[in-house]
Nucleic acid binder design. Structure first.
Length: 848
RNA sequence: GGGCGUGUAGCUCAGUUGGUCAGAGCACCCGCCUUACAAGCGGGCGGUCGGAGGUUCGAGUCCUCUCGCGCCCA
C-alpha cells in the first residue's frame, strides 16, 4: 500500500498487468449458458476514434465486466472495419497508388518511396488489398492502444478485420448461400447512382439535402387543342420523357387521359396517363415522367409499363446517342447539342432551346427542395439502369417483411423505444437491399460469367466457387475448369467486377467473430450472441442488415439483446460529427483526467440518452477515483489488511445498519445491471460510498482504533466487508483504481472476483436496520451544522446534545460513536412521537 | 408533413406503478489545516418541475392542446 496513493501511471501499470495475467481471456471450455457474448461494433479504422466511441464502448465494457464478475465467461472480441470507401481513399493518399482492376497482380510490388497524390501508381486489386491490409494493421495497433488505455476488457486474442481472409470468406460464403436459396439475385434495374464515385448506392445510404432549384413551366403540344402545361425542376430530362401523368380524380385532365401529346423541342409523342401518385396540388397537377428523374418516375415507369429512354450515363453526362423514339431531325439536332454535357449544362441548354421555341412559359420560379444524395457524396444522385446484386430484405415482399418485423419484436431493446426505429425503417422499405458497388476495395462477388462466342457475358449462368476455395478474387483467379488465359476471350470467362457494400460484410460480424463454419465449436458456444451494442444511427443499416443475414442463414436472431447508446453532444448540444468539425479526440481527456474519470463520465450517460461532453463530470470522476484510493488506504490501515473479514465479529448496531444498507445497494446495483441500466448501478454505489466516507467512517473512526474491545473489532470487520463490496461494485466503472486498491489487500484481480451477492451482506448485517445509520448520521450532521454556524472547527467540543423524536432511539444505539465523532460531552435521547428528529446542540459558552 | 425522443435549480442530470418528489453533483456564498484525502472537509443560497387546460381527494409523474430543442423519415 503506497504512502501517498495516486492515479499517476495507473493506466500503464494495470494495462500491462491485465495483459500478463490474461484476466480478460475468454474461456472457451464453458457451455453456452455460462457464456456472455458480445457483438462489438467494429470501428472504422481509417478515421480516428473520437469521444463518442469512448462513450458507447465504455457502456459495453461495464456490462462485460459485470457479466464476467457475475460468473460468465465473457466473449468480447474486437473488430476493425477497414473494408470500404474510407480506407480506399486513405490507402490511395498514403501510398500514392490507385486501384486498376484490369492490371494483373504483381507479387513483387513495392509502393513508391515518395507518394505523389497527383501521380498515383495504378496497381492491381490484389496488390491494393495487400496495401490496405498493411496500413490498416498499423492503424489498428493505434486503436488497440487507445482501447487498452481506456480499459476495455476485450480479449485481444479475438480480433478481426472486415477485410481479412476470414471476413472475406464469410461474406462470400453467406452470399453464395443467399444466392443458392434465392435470397440474393441479380437484376438490371433503375438504380440510385453516385456520378462522382460511379457506384450504385443503397436506400440506407441516402440522405436528403435541401438544394435550390426552379420550376420550369413547359408547353406540350397536341393536335387540335390547347397546349398542356407541366412544371418540372428537371427540364434537361425532357428528351427522356416517356409520358405525362395526372391524378385519375383530377377533372381538369380527365379528357386527356388516353390521348397523346408531343414533347416541346424534341417532338416525341407521349401518352397522357392517370396514376394515383400524381398530386393535383403540385404545380399544374400534371407531370412529365422521365427515365429517370426520381424514384416516383421509377414507380410510374414500372406500374404503367412505360418504355425506357435513358439519357444520363454512368459519368453523369448526357449519353451520345439519342434515346429510342426521338426520331425527328429537329429533335435529333437538338439532342446533339446536349450529348456529352453534364446534367447541369444540359439543363441550361434545354432551357435555351425551350426559350427559342417559345415553349418555356414565363420565367422559372425558384424553390428550395430536398434532393437525394449519397451520404458520402457531394453531387445529387442520378438514376441509371444497371445490373446489380440484391439481397431480399422485405422491401418487395410482404412475407419477408413481416418475418423481419417479428424478429424485431423478438429482440430485447434497451431502451425499449428504439424498437420503433427498426419498425419504421422496415415498414418503409421500398426495394430490396442493393449490395453491389462499383468500387475496388471491398469483398469481391465470388462469381464469374462464361463468355459466349461473341464474348458477351452469360449473366444467367454464373460460375461460383466451392466454399472450400473461399475467399476468392475473381479478378485474379480463374474459376474451376478454366485457365487464366481464357479470361476475357470469347468462350472463356470474366469475373464479376463489383465488390460488396461494406454492410454486406459487417452485417456478418457475429458470424465472423464467432468462427462461423471455421470453428464450429466456438460458434456453438457463443452464437446467437447475447448483446449487440451500437449507436442509434445505424439501426437501419448495421442492426437491420445483421438481422436479415442471420434470419436467412440461421433462422434466428443474431443476438437476444440490443443496447443502443445515445449521441455525444458538444457543449452547445449539437451532435458531434466529423462533418461538423466539432469532434473531440479522447487521448487528451484520458491523460488529463485519467481513464477511470473519463469512463465515469461515459457511464453517467444512460443507454439511448444523448449526453453532453462534460469535463466537469470527468473532474467529478477523477475526484471519486482519488477518494477511493484514500478511503481504502485509511480503512485498510485502521482495520488491517486481512483479506477475509469475519462477518461474525460485526456486532454493533451501527455497523450492522451500514451493512444492511450496503446489501440494499448491492441488490439494487445488480438488478440495474441486469436491466442494462449501468448508470443506476453507478449512482447507487457512488451515493453509498460518499455517505460512508462522510458519516460512517467519521463515526467509527475512534472505535475502530480500539483493538481491545469487541466493539472495535466489529467496526474493523464491517469496514473491510464494506470495502470488499465497494471495490467490486466500482470495478466495472473504474477498473484501474478498483484493481489498484484491491491489490493492496487481496490476491488476484478484482475483475476476476465474484460480483458481490446480496446474501453475503444480508448475512453479515444480521438484524441490522439501515435506519440506525440514517438517524445517527442525522444527529452528527446537526452537530456539524451547529459548529459550522458558530464558525468553529469540527474538532470543537460540544457541551451537550439532546435528541428528540421517533428516531431518537435508533440514534441512541450508537451514542458512543456520536460522542466521539462530534466531541460531545453530554448526550441525551428522548423518544417521542415527533416524526422529525430534533437535535439540540449546546456549544460552550465562549463560542456562542 | 410524419415518427421517435426530450424540455425539472446558473450548468449536467435523478425522480419506479400519481400521494414527504421538489432531489444530487457542479458552480456560487460562508466557514474549517479535522493525523485517509486542502485536487480535502463542514454548512448555506438556489427551482413549483417549458406553457395552457383536464382527470383525481391529490400530478414533474396520467390525458388533450400548445411552444422549444434533438434525431430519423418524407
Amino acid at each position: 500500500m503506497p504512502e501517498k496513493p495516486s492515479l499517476d501511471g495507473i493506466e500503464a501499470k494495470w494495462v500491462d498487468a491485465w495483459d500478463e495475467s490474461g484476466v480478460y481471456h475468454f474461456d472457451r471450455s464453458r457451455s453456452r449458458e455460462e457464456i456472455f457474448s458480445i457483438d462489438t461494433p467494429p470501428p472504422t479504422v481509417s478515421g480516428s476514434l473520437h469521444i463518442g466511441h469512448v462513450f458507447s464502448y465504455t457502456h459495453t465494457d461495464t456490462v462485460a465486466r459485470f457479466q464476467r464478475m457475475n460468473g460468465k465467461a465473457v466473449f468480447y472480441p474486437m473488430g476493425w472495419d477497414d473494408n470500404g470507401l474510407p480506407t480506399e481513399r486513405r490507402v490511395q493518399n498514403y501510398y500514392g497508388v490507385r486501384c486498376d482492376p484490369s492490371i494483373a497482380y504483381d507479387p513483387d510490388f513495392t509502393p513508391p518511396a515518395k507518394p505523389d497524390a497527383k501521380r498515383q501508381v495504378p496497381i492491381s486489386r490484389r496488390n491494393f488489398i495487400e496495401l490496405c491490409d498493411r496500413l490498416t494493421a498499423e492503424d489498428e495497433k493505434v486503436f488497440e492502444g487507445i482501447w487498452r488505455t481506456l480499459g476495455l476488457s476485450v480479449d485481444w486474442r479475438h480480433t478481426y478485420a472486415t477485410i481479412d481472409d476470414n471476413s472475406r470468406a464469410a461474406a462470400q460464403r453467406a452470399f453464395l448461400r443467399n444466392l443458392a436459396r434465392g435470397e440474393a439475385y441479380m437484376a438490371e434495374a433503375p438504380t440510385l447512382w453516385d456520378v462522382t464515385f460511379r457506384t450504385a448506392v443503397a436506400q440506407a445510404e441516402l440522405e436528403d439535402r435541401d438544394r435550390p432549384s426552379a420550376y420550369h413551366k413547359l408547353a406540350f403540344h397536341r393536335d387540335g387543342g390547347e397546349p398542356v402545361l407541366i412544371e418540372t425542376t428537371r427540364p434537361e430530362l425532357l428528351p427522356a420523357c416517356v409520358a405525362l401523368v395526372a391524378n385519375p380524380d383530377d377533372e381538369r385532365y380527365q379528357p386527356l387521359f388516353g390521348s397523346t401529346v408531343r414533347t416541346p423541342v424534341f417532338g416525341v409523342e407521349v401518352p397522357v396517363l392517370a396514376h394515383r401518385l400524381a398530386d393535383p396540388e403540385k404545380g399544374s397537377g400534371i407531370a412529365m415522367i422521365c427515365t429517370f428523374g426520381d424514384l416516383t418516375d421509377v414507380t410510374w415507369w414500372r406500374e404503367l409499363q412505360l418504355p425506357t429512354r435513358p439519357i444520363v450515363g454512368w459519368d453523369g453526362r448526357i449519353v451520345a446517342d439519342p434515346p429510342a423514339g426521338l426520331e425527328s431531325e429537329a429533335g435529333r439536332d437538338a439532342y446533339a447539342t446536349l450529348a456529352g454535357a453534364t446534367v447541369h449544362t444540359a439543363r441550361e441548354r434545354v432551357v435555351g432551346l425551350l426559350r427559342e421555341s417559345g415553349d418555356l412559359i414565363g420565367e422559372p420560379s425558384k424553390i428550395t427542395h430536398p434532393v437525394k444524395f449519397y451520404e458520402k457524396g457531394d453531387k445529387p444522385l442520378e438514376i441509371v439502369t444497371t445490373r446489380q446484386w440484391y439481397i431480399r430484405n422485405g422491401g418487395r415482399d410482404a412475407g419477408v417483411r413481416e418475418a423481419l418485423l417479428e424478429r424485431g419484436r423478438e429482440l430485447a431493446w434497451h431502451p425499449a423505444h428504439m424498437r420503433s426505429r427498426y419498425e419504421h425503417w422496415v415498414g418503409g422499405l421500398n426495394g430490396d437491399w442493393l449490395i453491389s458497388r462499383q468500387r475496388f476495395f471491398g469483398v469481391p462477388f465470388p462469381v464469374w460469367y462464361p463468355l459466349d462466342a461473341e464474348g458477351n457475358p452469360r449473366y444467367d449462368e454464373p460460375i461460383t466457387p466451392a466454399e472450400s476455395a473461399l475467399p476468392v478474387d475473381p479478378s485474379s483467379e480463374a474459376p474451376e475448369g478454366y485457365t487464366e488465359a481464357q479470361r476475357g476471350v470469347p468462350g472463356g470467362f470474366t469475373g464479376d467486377p463489383d465488390v460488396m457494400d461494406t454492410w454486406a460484410t459487417s452485417s456478418l460480424s457475429p458470424q465472423i467473430a464467432a468462427g462461423w463454419e471455421r470453428d464450429p465449436d466456438l460458434f456453438e458456444r457463443v452464437f446467437p450472441m447475447d448483446l449487440r451494442p451500437q449507436g442509434q444511427d445505424i439501426i437501419r443499416t448495421w442492426l437491420f442488415a445483421t438481422v436479415v443475414r442471420s434470419h436467412f442463414e440461421h433462422g434466428s436472431l443474431p443476438w437476444s439483446t440490443a443496447g443502443i447508446s445515445g449521441w455525444i453532444l458538444d457543449p452547445d448540444r449539437k451532435k458531434m460529427s466529423k462533418s461538423k468539425g466539432n469532434v473531440v479526440t479522447p487521448i487528451d481527456l484520458l491523460q488529463k483526467y485519467s481513464s477511470d474519470a473519463v469512463r465515469y463520465w461515459a457511464a453517467s450517460g444512460r443507454l439511448g440518452t444523448d449526453t453532453a461532453l462534460d469535463e466537469g463530470q470527468m473532474k467529478v470522476g477523477r475526484r471519486l477515483a482519488i477518494k477511493i484510493l484514500n478511503a481504502s488506504k485509511f480503512a485498510l490501515s485502521v482495520a488491517g489488511e486481512t483479506s477475509v473479514p469475519d462477518p461474525a465479529a460485526v456486532t454493533e448496531p451501527l455497523d450492522r445498519s451500514m451493512l444492511a444498507a450496503l446489501a440494499d445497494v448491492v441488490e439494487d446495483a445488480t438488478a440495474a445491471f441486469e436491466g442494462y441500466d449501468h448508470t443506476r448501478a453507478l449512482e447507487r454505489t457512488e451515493r453509498f460510498f460518499w455517505d460512508l466516507c462522510d458519516d460512517y467512517l467519521e463515526l467509527v473512526k475512534t472505535r475502530a482504533y480500539d483493538t481491545e474491545s469487541a466493539a472495535g473489532a466489529s467496526a474493523r470487520a464491517a469496514l473491510l466487508i464494506a470495502l470488499s463490496a465497494l471495490h467490486r461494485l466500482f470495478a466495472p466503472f473504474l477498473p484501474f483504481v478498483a484493481d489498484e486498491v484491491w491489490s493492496w489487500w487481496q490476491d488476484g484481480s478484482v475483475h476476476a472476483a465474484a460480483w458481490p451477492s446480496t446474501g453475503e451482506f444480508r448475512a453479515a448485517a444480521g438484524d441490522g436496520d439501515p435506519a440506525v445509520l440514517t438517524a445517527t448520521a442525522e444527529v452528527l450532521r446537526a452537530v456539524r451544522k451547529a459548529k459550522s454556524e458558530a464558525k468553529l472547527s469540527m474538532r470543537a467540543e460540544v457541551d451537550r446534545v439532546v435528541v428528540r423524536g421517533k428516531q431518537a432511539e435508533n440514534a441512541g444505539l450508537s451514542r458512543t460513536d456520536i460522542a466521539a465523532a462530534g466531541r460531545v460531552g453530554e448526550l441525551g435521547f428522548e423518544t417521542s412521537d415527533d416524526a422529525e428528529l430534533r437535535v439540540e446542540v449546546s456549544l460552550p459558552e465562549a463560542a456562542e
